[in-house]
Amino acid sequence: MKTNKPESAQTGGPTRAEMDILQVLWDHGPSTVRFVNDTLNAQKKSVQYTSTLKQMQLMTERGMLLRDESSMKHVYTAALEENSTKGNLLENFVDTHYKGSVSKLLQYFLGNKKASKAELDEIRKLLKEEENKL
């Protein structure tokens, strides 16, 4: 059954390549395909201009990007909000890989990755804030 949701919403979120493009737009605001492609290549992601163009056209069709065609250079803007998009991806990841348990996710990260004192202090602060909400 076909729905009116963007394909990304039907499949669990943007792909890695789509996220790379969205991140450039979130970081830099409305941009041309040339700017997005140059930025991706500066990040050591070897991407052809035509591939970036096609991907952004498809993302526009899927409702992930908005395109301003009022000038010669088309300018694209992210139609998806950064925090909610990343939040949805993270929730899906935790549900899929950690049975919805945030504590298991944190245990994995803290057990397998050396956290700095500053990171641990930030985690403590976030936990305290969450505890105060209860």
Rank of each mutant, 00 (worst) to 15 (best):
D68Y: 06
K2N: 11
L89Q: 11
Q23R: 10
V33Y: 00
M59G: 06
R34T: 13
L53P: 00
L58W: 03
Y98D: 05
K2G: 06
S70M: 06
T77A: 03
S51D: 12
S101Q: 00
I21G: 04
P30F: 01
Y49R: 03
N41S: 08
G111I: 05
G29Q: 03
S51P: 03
G87Q: 01
L90D: 05
W26H: 04
T60V: 04
N88G: 12
E61G: 04
N92C: 07
L40R: 06
T11Y: 08
D27E: 12
T85Y: 03
N88H: 13
K133P: 02
F93G: 00
M59W: 06
M56V: 01
E122P: 00
G87P: 00
K73R: 13
K2Y: 09
L106W: 05
S84E: 12
S8M: 07
T15G: 01
Q23V: 02
T96E: 15
L126A: 13
Q55H: 10
N83Y: 12
K133R: 14
K128I: 12
D68E: 05
S46Q: 10
L40V: 01
L110Q: 11
M56G: 00
T77F: 01
A9M: 12
P14M: 12
N37C: 15
H74P: 02
K104Q: 13
H28D: 04
G13H: 01
E131R: 15
N4T: 11
K117Y: 04
G63T: 07
H74N: 14
M59C: 08
P14W: 10
G12P: 00
E69Q: 12
L126Y: 10
E18W: 01
A42Q: 09
